[in-house]
């Protein structure tokens, strides 16, 4: 909770900056925990129901624990036309999870979005804020391997 207080401090306890505050808390804890939201609600006098409303409205927020790596597949029109469904189904097969779920070893969370605004790079997959353009189903294996390497070394 000290860390959360520091985040609130950073934004000057301003209610209007709640989105940034929630974003920072999510970065800290990988997801929005209920006790964290209750704490923010008490400190900033924002009803808990409002915070829950915000947290469920924006798909960037998650109320469930997320894995170490967040894999986001764009399913926008351009990506869809250029083969995003195949990429997604390969990812589902490989990670054995559906969009919105987390692997049992807490390594990956799979998510879909509806457009990232980078249609020139379609189909696009984002892993931990790194953008991988022109992905195909065959490239999925190599893409994931890049994130598994450090784990193999350990």
């Amino acid at each position: 909770m000290d860390k959360i207080d520091r985040i609130l401090e950073k934004y000057g306890h301003q209610r209007s900056r709640i989105i940034q505050i929630l974003n920072d808390i999510q970065k800290l804890q990988t997801y929005l925990r209920r006790d964290a939201l209750e704490h923010v609600s008490r400190r900033l006098h924002i009803p808990l129901s409002r915070l829950y409303s915000l947290a469920t409205f924006y798909s960037a927020f998650s109320l469930k624990p997320r894995g170490k790596h967040l894999v986001t597949v764009c399913m926008g029109t351009a990506c869809h036309v250029r083969g995003a469904p195949a990429v997604l189904s390969r990812l589902e097969d490989r990670l054995k999870i559906k969009p919105g779920e987390t692997t049992t070893d807490d390594e990956y969370t799979l998510k879909t979005v509806n457009c990232l605004g980078a249609c020139a790079l379609a189909p696009i997959v984002v892993v931990d804020e790194e953008y991988h353009g022109q992905t195909t189903a065959d490239k999925v294996e190599r893409l994931l391997a890049g994130y598994e390497k450090p784990k193999a070394k350990n």
């Binding site: 209920r34 939201l37 009803p47 808990l48 129901s49 409002r50 915070l51 829950y52 409303s53 469920t56 409205f57 798909s59 109320l63």
Partner: peptide, 27 residues
């Protein structure tokens, strides 16, 4: 009281309490 609020988005939008708690526990 602000017990009730919209949650989720688009076709999944619904009215409810925070974390879908029973009203008894949500103030």
């Amino acid at each position: 009281a602000s017990t009730l609020e919209f949650h989720h988005r688009g076709p999944d939008t619904m009215v409810g309490t925070a974390f879908d708690l029973p009203h008894l526990e949500s103030g």
